[in-house]
Amino acid sequence: MIRSVKEIEEAPEFKKLVTSRWVMAGILTLLVFITYYGFVIMVGVARDTLSTKIGVATTLGIPLAVLVIVISFVLTLVYVLWANARYDRIVATLNEKLER
Protein backbone atom coordinates (compact mmCIF):
# COMPACT_ATOMS: atom_id res chain seq x y z
CA MET A 1 0.00 0.00 0.00
CA ILE A 2 1.28 3.40 -0.92
CA ARG A 3 0.48 6.15 1.54
CA SER A 4 2.67 9.18 1.04
CA VAL A 5 3.54 11.42 -1.88
CA LYS A 6 7.19 10.43 -1.44
CA GLU A 7 6.31 6.76 -1.78
CA ILE A 8 4.22 7.27 -4.85
CA GLU A 9 6.95 9.29 -6.52
CA GLU A 10 9.30 6.34 -6.03
CA ALA A 11 6.82 3.70 -7.11
CA PRO A 12 7.82 1.96 -10.35
CA GLU A 13 4.31 2.38 -11.81
CA PHE A 14 4.58 6.14 -11.37
CA LYS A 15 8.04 6.30 -12.90
CA LYS A 16 6.77 4.25 -15.83
CA LEU A 17 3.76 6.53 -16.23
CA VAL A 18 5.93 9.65 -16.42
CA THR A 19 8.34 8.03 -18.86
CA SER A 20 5.59 6.76 -21.14
CA ARG A 21 3.93 10.19 -21.14
CA TRP A 22 7.09 11.94 -22.30
CA VAL A 23 8.05 9.22 -24.78
CA MET A 24 4.60 9.58 -26.34
CA ALA A 25 4.80 13.38 -26.27
CA GLY A 26 8.35 13.31 -27.68
CA ILE A 27 7.51 11.02 -30.60
CA LEU A 28 4.38 12.98 -31.52
CA THR A 29 6.19 16.34 -31.28
CA LEU A 30 8.91 14.95 -33.53
CA LEU A 31 6.25 13.84 -36.05
CA VAL A 32 4.75 17.35 -36.09
CA PHE A 33 8.26 18.73 -36.69
CA ILE A 34 8.95 16.31 -39.53
CA THR A 35 5.56 17.04 -41.13
CA TYR A 36 5.79 20.82 -40.94
CA TYR A 37 9.49 21.32 -41.61
CA GLY A 38 9.41 18.61 -44.25
CA PHE A 39 6.81 20.70 -46.08
CA VAL A 40 8.65 24.01 -45.51
CA ILE A 41 11.97 22.55 -46.68
CA MET A 42 10.24 21.12 -49.78
CA VAL A 43 8.95 24.61 -50.55
CA GLY A 44 12.53 25.84 -50.27
CA VAL A 45 14.39 23.15 -52.22
CA ALA A 46 11.88 21.03 -54.17
CA ARG A 47 9.77 23.65 -55.91
CA ASP A 48 9.52 21.57 -59.07
CA THR A 49 8.06 18.59 -57.20
CA LEU A 50 5.46 20.80 -55.51
CA SER A 51 4.63 22.38 -58.86
CA THR A 52 3.90 19.00 -60.48
CA LYS A 53 0.41 19.05 -61.97
CA ILE A 54 -1.92 16.39 -60.59
CA GLY A 55 -5.04 17.64 -62.38
CA VAL A 56 -5.94 20.18 -65.04
CA ALA A 57 -4.11 22.87 -63.08
CA THR A 58 -4.01 21.59 -59.49
CA THR A 59 -0.46 21.24 -58.24
CA LEU A 60 0.85 18.63 -55.79
CA GLY A 61 1.60 21.42 -53.30
CA ILE A 62 -2.09 22.11 -52.66
CA PRO A 63 -3.06 18.68 -51.27
CA LEU A 64 0.26 18.54 -49.38
CA ALA A 65 -0.50 21.85 -47.61
CA VAL A 66 -3.89 20.46 -46.60
CA LEU A 67 -2.18 17.24 -45.51
CA VAL A 68 0.07 19.16 -43.08
CA ILE A 69 -3.05 20.46 -41.35
CA VAL A 70 -4.80 17.08 -41.42
CA ILE A 71 -1.75 15.25 -40.00
CA SER A 72 -1.44 17.82 -37.17
CA PHE A 73 -5.06 17.17 -36.25
CA VAL A 74 -4.69 13.40 -36.49
CA LEU A 75 -1.63 13.45 -34.19
CA THR A 76 -3.65 15.48 -31.68
CA LEU A 77 -6.37 12.84 -31.80
CA VAL A 78 -3.82 10.04 -31.37
CA TYR A 79 -2.57 11.65 -28.15
CA VAL A 80 -6.06 12.29 -26.80
CA LEU A 81 -7.21 8.73 -27.50
CA TRP A 82 -4.03 7.31 -25.94
CA ALA A 83 -4.33 9.50 -22.86
CA ASN A 84 -8.04 8.85 -22.41
CA ALA A 85 -7.60 5.09 -22.66
CA ARG A 86 -4.20 4.33 -21.13
CA TYR A 87 -2.83 7.28 -19.19
CA ASP A 88 -6.01 8.12 -17.28
CA ARG A 89 -6.45 4.49 -16.20
CA ILE A 90 -2.98 4.28 -14.65
CA VAL A 91 -3.53 7.67 -12.98
CA ALA A 92 -6.79 6.41 -11.50
CA THR A 93 -5.14 3.24 -10.10
CA LEU A 94 -2.27 5.23 -8.58
CA ASN A 95 -4.64 7.77 -7.06
CA GLU A 96 -6.68 4.99 -5.50
CA LYS A 97 -3.59 3.59 -3.85
CA LEU A 98 -2.69 7.02 -2.54
CA GLU A 99 -6.06 7.67 -0.96
CA ARG A 100 -6.63 4.34 0.78
Binding site: T29, V32, Y36, V40, I69
Partner: peptide
Protein backbone atom coordinates in the same frame (compact mmCIF):
# COMPACT_ATOMS: atom_id res chain seq x y z
CA UNK B 1 -1.84 32.26 -54.67
CA UNK B 2 -0.19 29.15 -53.25
CA UNK B 3 2.29 31.13 -51.10
CA UNK B 4 -0.65 32.22 -48.97
CA UNK B 5 -1.49 28.56 -48.33
CA UNK B 6 2.04 27.87 -47.12
CA UNK B 7 1.69 30.74 -44.69
CA UNK B 8 -1.66 29.39 -43.42
CA UNK B 9 -0.24 25.97 -42.45
CA UNK B 10 2.24 27.54 -39.99
CA UNK B 11 -0.56 28.87 -37.82
CA UNK B 12 -1.92 25.44 -36.94
CA UNK B 13 1.16 23.38 -36.08
CA UNK B 14 1.59 24.89 -32.61
CA UNK B 15 -1.65 23.34 -31.35
CA UNK B 16 -0.61 19.66 -31.22
CA UNK B 17 2.69 20.70 -29.62
CA UNK B 18 0.82 22.74 -27.00
CA UNK B 19 -1.11 19.59 -26.13
CA UNK B 20 1.93 17.29 -26.03
CA UNK B 21 4.19 19.54 -23.94
Amino acid sequence: GFDGMIYATGWLVGWPVLLFL
